[in-house]
Nucleic acid binder design. Structure first.
Lengths: 334, 334
DNA sequence: CTGTTAGCGCATTCAA
DNA sequence: TTGAATGCGCTAACAG
């Protein structure tokens, strides 16, 4: 008589359950399988009872050895802020868990570093990789993860992998048109990191929209998406005349610009110029930063991503990236 | 002559490397092992070359089957905001990765839900669980994860698991003492969710400190840590006389109080009462929310956590939780 | 419907 | 130092 389930971990295994239920291991496997498998009601009952009694939990790692699926999804970011707003991330996390998978959060700055730790880690066995970090293009990501299912949100997608991107041009046109209707004739643009493809397109959209509305782009200032860089950029407006409007490619920079101008021109704000941000962060709903902004429906965005994870087959190679339209959200500053 | 490495995944396995290098699988295993194992220089070289040629990557899931270690660390939160500040989370993520492990991020609201998805997921095989969510106590967490190594940050620790907690009393005393020196005699307290142990202690610390400084606690208002709840709570000050100081157990609520009062008493602020927050969020460094706050050294906090993960043996059962002292950070509002 | 058998990819005995 | 054999925990293929 040997004790059931006591190798070293103390964890009962499928074999223990089989022994207690007096059936074969295969029957246990089938009885406990989520998908319906042929098992007599009698034995199924015994298995369930035995599993319950032993406190048995299947080992998903062992399962994955044969099934090739781990129920893990990698979320790859450069910095947490890549996800622009915590609401989006929180929702994504919830939805992924709702479909029975779990999130492996990877912070990846460069391809080199990524290769290094992917070599050792579980990461390259995930069922899917959701990529915000712009450290690599789709082909590289597919190679790095042992998965063909990668969803690109960093703009570096190709024909072989699905991608979800905000359709920024729409919202930008709305914002600029709104400005034009308010009489804006001249503008400054505060941009983020130049290395990003997303940012390049964003800037191009602003240029096109401004031009279409006949607004003169007088100045382009380089920031890095941060509050501090917005403040720094705003010093350009301190001395001479200011443009009619300042467009920032992130809300954080717009916040910096706003605070800088409050400091430069006390009591004067917000009349000196109109201010537009980007991202529609939830903080723009706070009184102190009532920044007109451009955003998209996060629920829909997440919905598309999760759909690709659940039904990869709905993606046909060569189809264009899924666009989630952005909208203009007017607030006090614009 | 069969193609090397082409079952169905196309991924080369250890066996493929062995075949190409003309050695046994055991030799490959040893040659590629991080720890020094007996292998002749000649064969080691051949193995390394073969592995390189094939682009071989060991399968950590298969490894874990025998080693019982996955190099996975679970970070358990209730809501992303539990980590109070993204800076802390971002740093934690980086440090965990630096020690060769990866982060499984779990959003867990209740024990029921947790049990449900832990049953199916990889989560209960992690090497360690770092718990912010107050959904469960240490014993439950140890049971849920197949790990004895859990680090509790939610205040629900016991003698058997390490814990890291901010020593909040220090900073609170500093803040209250500072207020007293400024002539504060009466105060209101805006609290967060009552269900949390951390919150209970925080409130107790405020009461003790106020009492010690002879400040009368006139009002206690219930919030939920959010900006909106702060705004709502502040309506209590709209009608009658206001206390000399308002202490909030989160910066977000303090921001809400601040904005509400700016709306009630335009132009009057910040003289009507002093305002103190909690968490020392980075946004309190922005001009618009210059809220005096209480915070701790995030680098040290993370350092302690990671130390427990790397050297679990440094924890001796029964030792008290590691405290990271908080400090008072005075700003314009206090 | 059931049990037996054979792997999944790897680390680890144990003889040699 | 080496390689053959065994097993980690589980699923899948096959006969019965």
């Amino acid at each position: 008589m040997s004790e059931p389930a006591d190798d070293k971990t103390g964890r009962p295994t499928l074999a223990d359950v089989a022994a207690l239920a007096k059936v074969s291991r295969a029957v246990v496997s089938r009885a406990l399988s989520p998908s319906p498998r042929p098992v007599s009601a009698d034995k199924r009952e015994r298995v369930l009872r035995a599993a319950e009694a032993l406190g048995y939990r299947p080992n998903p790692l062992a399962q994955s050895l044969t099934t090739k699926r781990v129920n893990l999804v990698a979320v790859v970011v450069n910095h947490i802020h890549d996800l622009s707003d915590l609401d989006l991330f929180d929702r994504l996390l919830g939805e992924i868990q709702a479909i029975g998978k779990q999130v492996l959060l990877l912070k990846v700055g460069s391809v080199d570093r990524a290769e290094a730790f992917l070599r050792e880690g579980v990461a390259h066995h995930v069922d899917a990789a959701l990529v915000w970090s712009d450290f690599a293009d789709a082909a590289t990501v597919r190679r790095m993860f042992r998965s063909d299912l990668v969803v690109m949100m960093n703009g570096r997608h190709d024909a072989l992998s699905p991608a979800v991107v905000p359709d920024e041009a729409v919202g930008i046109r709305e914002a600029v048109a709104h400005a034009a209707r308010q009489g804006v004739r001249s503008a400054a643009l505060v941009t983020g990191r130049a290395s990003s493809r997303i940012e390049d397109e964003r800037v191009a959209s602003y240029r096109a929209a401004l031009s279409a509305e006949g607004i003169v782009l007088e100045t382009v200032l380089q920031g890095d998406y941060s509050y501090a860089s917005g403040r720094a950029a705003a010093s350009a407006f301190q001395g001479g005349p200011t443009p009619d409007a300042v467009f920032c490619t992130s809300d954080a920079m717009a916040m910096g610009v706003l605070d800088a101008c409050r400091a430069f021109f006390p009591g004067d704000h917000p009349d000196r110029f109109r201010l537009y941000g980007f991202d529609n962060l939830s903080i723009t709903d706070h009184d102190a930063y009532p920044i007109s902004s451009i955003g998209f429906d996060k629920a829909r965005f997440v919905e598309h991503i999760v759909r690709f994870v659940v039904h990869p087959e709905t993606f046909v190679a060569g189809s264009p990236p899924v666009g989630v339209p952005t909208r203009f959200f007017p607030r006090a500053t614009g």
